[in-house]
Simulated scan of single mutants.
Amino acid sequence: MGHELYLTDAPTSDDLAIVSSGLTAFNEGEVGASDRKLLAVLIRDESGTVIGGLSGYTSWGWLFTQLLFIPETLRGKGMAAKLLTEAENEARTRGCKGAWIDTFNPLALKAYKSHGYQVFGEIPNFVETRTRTFLQKAL
C-alpha cells in the first residue's frame, strides 16, 4: 500500500483536524491529557467592540500566549501588563505552573521582560535583522 504526499496552501478544516487529533492522541498517550483550554483577555471600546487583547491557551500546566495586540492609542499605558496579569491569574486558577510567549518586536520584548518573563531562546535574524525571542515565567 503506497502513500502520497500532497502539498497545499489551502488545507480543509477536516484535514487539519485529522493532524491535530492524531498528534493530540499521541501526546496524551505519552504524557497524559493536556487539558487544553482556550483563554482570551479582550479589550473592548465604549460600544463593546473588541479592539485588541490577548489570546492563547493553557495546556499541561502552562499558559501559552499566542497573540497579544494593543491598539496604538493604548500603547505605552501599561495595557500589556494588565492583559498578561489577567491571563496569568486565570492560568494559576487552572493550575498552571508557568507561562511562555515569543516575539520579534523589541518593544514587546521590553514589556515582557519588565513583567517578569525571562529569555530561554532566540532565533537571530528571524525577520530581516530582528531576533525572535522566546520567554518564560514561573507562575
Rank of each mutant, 00 (worst) to 15 (best):
Q118E: 14
G95W: 07
Y117H: 08
N105A: 07
I123L: 15
A91I: 03
Q66A: 08
Y112G: 05
R130Q: 12
A91M: 08
R94V: 02
G98F: 04
R94K: 12
L67H: 15
M79C: 06
F64P: 00
L135H: 07
F120D: 01
E86K: 13
K110A: 15
F126P: 09
M79S: 02
G98H: 02
H115M: 11
R130G: 00
Q66S: 10
G98R: 14
D102K: 06
R75D: 06
T93Y: 07
F104Q: 10
R94C: 06
I70C: 09
L109V: 04
K113R: 14
G76A: 03
F126T: 11
T103S: 07
G76Y: 04
P106Q: 07
F126Y: 15
N105G: 01
K113I: 11
G95I: 06
F69A: 13
I70Y: 03
V127W: 14
F134K: 06
A99V: 00
Y117I: 08
I101P: 09
W62K: 10
L135R: 09
V119M: 11
K82C: 07
A80P: 03
F120G: 00
L83V: 05
L135A: 11
A81M: 05
L74I: 03
Q66C: 08
A91F: 11
F69I: 12
F120R: 02
Y117V: 09
F69V: 15
F64N: 08
T129K: 12
E72A: 13
A81Q: 11
N89F: 03
I101R: 07
L109F: 11
N89L: 12
A81T: 12
I123P: 05
H115Q: 14
N105K: 05
P124A: 09
R132P: 01
G61M: 10
E90L: 04
F64S: 07
A81L: 05
A108R: 11
L83Q: 04
G61Y: 11
C96A: 07
G116C: 04
T131G: 07
G116N: 01
L84I: 04
T129S: 14
L84S: 01
L68D: 06
L107C: 00
K97N: 07
R130S: 13
A111V: 15
V119H: 02
Q66L: 08
L84A: 03
W100M: 13
T133G: 00
Y112F: 15
C96L: 07
G61F: 09
R130N: 09
M79P: 01
Q118T: 14
T65L: 13
A80G: 06
Q118Y: 04
S114W: 00
T103Y: 06
A87K: 00
R94Q: 14
L109I: 03
P106H: 02
K97L: 10
K82D: 05
G76L: 00
T73M: 06
S114N: 14
L63Q: 02
T129F: 00
I101V: 15
P71K: 01
T85R: 15
E88V: 04
N105P: 02
F104K: 10
T73L: 08
E86G: 01
F120P: 01
N125Q: 11
A111I: 09
A111D: 09
V119F: 02
G98Y: 06
L84R: 04
G121I: 08
A81R: 10
P71G: 01
L84F: 05
P71T: 06
A87W: 02
R132Y: 03
T93N: 14
A80L: 01
L83A: 03
Y112V: 08
A111C: 12
